[in-house]
Amino acid sequence: MFRLQDVTKTYHRRGEQVVAFQAASLEIAAGDYLAIVGSSGSCKTTLLSMLGGMLSPDAGRVWVDNRSIYECSVPQRAAIRRDKLGFVFQTFNLVPYMSAVENVQVPLYLAGIAPAVQRQRAAELLERVGLEDRLHHKPSELSVGQQQRVALARTLANSPPVILADEPTGNLDPQSRERVLEFFAELHREGRTIVVVTHDAVAANDACRKLTLSDGVIVGVDTDAHKRTVAA
C-alpha cells in the first residue's frame, strides 16, 4: 500500500538545516495495522503527514498504491487523499459551525456526491457509530467521545482503504478509547490499512506491527505486538 524510499525531511532552524526524518526504506502492506510510536519530537506526525500526501519530503519518494504521490500534481494528490485516505485527528478537527451530519457530509461533498445522497450516507455512518440521535448537534453540543465518533464517521465517509490516525485516543476517556480501538480493529477486519501514530501503549499493542521512531529514524519494527489482529 505504502512504500517509502530514501525519504529525508529536513527543517531549517536558526539558519541551520536539521534532518528531521530519514528512512531508507519502509513498506506498509495493504491490510496492515501499523502503530507508529516514539517519544515526542521523534517525527511520528511528520511520517504520517508524508504518508498522507500532505508534507513532501526533501528527498526520496513515497508511493501510495504504486503512485509516487509527490510526483503527482496538487489536485491529483488531493484526489488520492479524498478517495484512498481517511484521517483521524487527536483533536477530531470537526468544523465547529457545522452539525454532526454536515461534518460527515464534507468529504462526500468533496467527492462530488449529490447533497441528498450526502445526507443519507452521512446519517447511515453516524448511525453506525451510534450517533443516530445526534445528527444535528454541533460539535460543541457533543461529548468528547461523541465528537471522536463523528470524526470517525467522517473518516469513513468515502470508504477509504487506508486510515491514518494521529493520536486517536490521546484526548479520550478510557471508555471512549476502548470504543475507538474496537472500531479500528473492526475496520482492520474489514480489510483496511490502518496507520496509527500513538503514545498510548494499549493502542499501539492493538496494531499488527509497531514501528518505533527515535529522532526521526526508524529504530525498530515489532511484528509480534498485535493482540487483536485478524490477518488481512
Partner: peptide
C-alpha cells in the same frame, strides 16, 4: 487554519 488543513486532508484542493 486548522479547518483548512482538515479540509485539505479530507481531499479539498487548494482551488476549492
Amino acid at each position: 487554519r486548522r479547518e483548512i488543513g482538515t479540509l485539505v486532508a479530507l481531499g479539498a484542493t487548494p482551488r476549492l
